[in-house]
């Protein structure tokens, strides 16, 4: 299968691989997917409590090139965004940006799920009601 240039770029030079300290109150962690399905994404955000801005984002992904690229792109987009704006990231934006083929749309869905899961983890830690996820 042919990958788009952008997928190959993110796969070869993934942005923001790493781990944030999940014990910190201003760090939200989202772990989605399952090993037996062939995709597991862990996406973490660090939030400036005062401004509600995401100051750092990191990921680690077990999955195909498209899954790695989707999560790598997501961390790029998250940095500097407010939580509210981060919630507006739609999986189809990722599909478009990376030119994912139809069989790889689930990778973008997983990335969106990971963003929402990370935000909800942050919200729960800070006694905010979690947002509803589809």
């Amino acid at each position: 299968m042919a990958y788009s240039e952008k997928v190959i770029d993110h796969y070869s030079n993934p942005r923001n691989i790493g781990t944030l300290d999940k014990s910190k109150n201003n760090v939200g962690t989202g772990l989605v997917g399952a090993p037996e399905c062939g995709d597991v994404m862990r996406l973490q955000i660090e939030v400036d409590d005062a401004t509600g801005t995401i100051t750092d984002a990191k990921f680690k992904t077990f999955g195909c090139g498209s899954a790695i690229a989707s999560s790598s792109l997501a961390t790029e987009w998250l940095k500097g965004k407010s939580i509210d704006d981060a919630l507006k990231i739609d999986n189809m934006d990722i599909v478009e940006e990376l030119a994912l083929p139809p069989v790889k749309i689930h990778c973008s869905v997983l990335a969106e799920d990971a963003i929402k899961a990370a935000i909800n983890d942050y919200r729960t830690k800070n006694n905010l009601t979690p947002i509803e996820v589809h």
Partner: peptide, 10 residues
């Protein structure tokens, strides 16, 4: 390389 970016490996 893939293990370095794999949450499962971590």
């Amino acid at each position: 390389k893939l293990r370095e970016m794999s949450p499962l490996w971590e």
